[in-house]
Nucleic acid binder design. Structure first.
Lengths: 265, 265
DNA sequence: AAGTGGTCTAGACCACTAT
DNA sequence: TAGTGGTCTAGACCACTTT
């Protein structure tokens, strides 16, 4: 019985078991299309899992994977005992990522120029951030990221410098901006705290970024990385003009969505 | 044979089948703890799925759910035919959400004050954004979000006003800021585009937000919402001082993580 | 060829919600 | 009580990578 059993019209697009694509993925896409087309409206209930099992002739687990996929993408939500519902669009569920920044660093034309690198006794602020004693030696680095000689990001950072700690190797990697951003960070880093905020560029920043129209707004991305003993390894921040870092995202139902959640089951 | 079969020491914490918590969730947590403790280091391979099945005496699917859970949280990554690996911390995978903003609106002390609301012929810019003809009538609203009389967010927005379109009901909801942010947005909205950027507050913004130290930096959250015909319904933006919106996030391995991916299978 | 992750099934059982 | 989502199993098969 190759035909779907579901009542009403049977003109629904169906699952192609021979397509390279997993069945749960196809099913999720079919459901998304229907939501997108307004077949199921925000707030409305989707067919129950057992209905979908019958309609598309797949196992319950496969249906659940499809549903969980859409739930993870914030398209639907489930409620035990009640059903599965199409979510209403909400601004609060939005999340922004740093793809802009990543693309910039993936760009082969992007150059990292070291403006300054030297040892420095930690001042009160640095000592606090890196959990050092004031006056203790650390490394200070200033760098500029430029695309075709156009400065885009100005980065300043402090690294711990402690011969008794096994971060010597890590330092070189932490020092490598591309490494940090592209995922080949140090294996000695356990986690990192990031802070994104707005600022008015100061004179040094504006000059370094070659911005003349003042006052100018900028974005700051501050970061602290920690090792496996939860000790800070580095503290630093990126600054750029507001034109160069503008986070974009979309809420609600999208056509295609290829996130890491795709593989989610 | 209630004991784990795995070789070496058997002092591992085990799965409690009678705990209220799902087994896959417990297993994910056990693995995360071990990664956190440095048992498996970034870049290293985790035990294979079949090993985990033996060690913890659970089914393969349960192991996979645990692994997929951690993969969705960017803690590990899988490679078919090769194995499962602990991810290195990378800044590029960070994503920021608007929890600050949500909390602000959830706060019962937060008041929304309408400063102005009137019909307006669309100027060139508004017409473009809302896909109207220049001069066409739309609604303009200025609002202020304040916590205990302290202004925090200044919002300006334009709404389409077309009696032939069924957004009359929606307008009232779109008008309701809390609705938009908390998820009870209009059922007529299909999606929304969001843009987050930095700016230097202009005089009007600074005055409205009662900021006297100038120039002051601010964050702008711009939004356009679309209906199911992909037509823009509203366009607007939130402005706040940089102190009131500072996005924070964490990369790498965390202690606990309760995201929507929790229910992911 | 052996080991790895990836997909799918059929069926069991549970917890919750409506009625 | 009936229907819903949520968890788990045991086993089959596949695709990919390594040796």
């Amino acid at each position: 019985m190759p035909e779907p059993k579901g009542g009403a019209a049977a003109k629904l697009p169906l699952i192609d078991r021979d397509a390279g694509r997993p069945v749960f993925d196809q099913l999720a896409e079919l459901l998304r299309q229907q939501i997108l087309a307004g077949v199921y409206r925000p707030g409305e209930r989707l067919p129950s899992e057992s209905m979908l099992v019958e309609t598309y002739q797949v196992s319950k687990l496969t249906v659940r994977r499809a549903i969980n996929l859409l739930a993870a993408q914030n398209v639907i939500s489930t409620a035990q005992g009640r059903g599965t519902f199409v979510k209403e669009v909400d601004l609060g569920s939005a999340s922004f990522d740093l793809t802009n920044l990543k693309e910039l660093l993936d760009d082969t034309r992007t150059m990292v120029k070291i403006l300054e690198a030297r040892f420095l006794p930690a001042d009160e602020r640095v000592a606090r951030k890196l959990q050092l004693k004031p006056g203790q030696r650390c490394v200070f680095i200033r760098r500029l990221l430029a695309v075709q000689d156009q400065p885009v990001f100005y980065h300043r950072g402090y690294l711990i410098y402690d011969p008794t700690r096994p971060v010597m190797e890590a330092e070189m990697q932490v020092t490598d901006l591309k490494g940090i951003l592209q995922g080949s960070g140090s294996t000695l880093i356990k986690s990192g705290d990031l802070l994104l905020s707005a600022t008015v560029l100061n004179v040094e920043e504006a000059q370094t970024l070659q911005i003349t129209a003042l006052p100018a707004a900028g974005m700051i991305l501050e970061h602290i990385f920690y090792d496996f003993e939860n000790r800070p390894v580095s503290w630093g921040w990126f600054v750029c003009s507001s034109e160069h870092l503008c986070l974009h995202t979309r809420v609600g139902i999208e056509k295609v969505k290829r996130t890491r959640d795709e593989r989610t089951r």
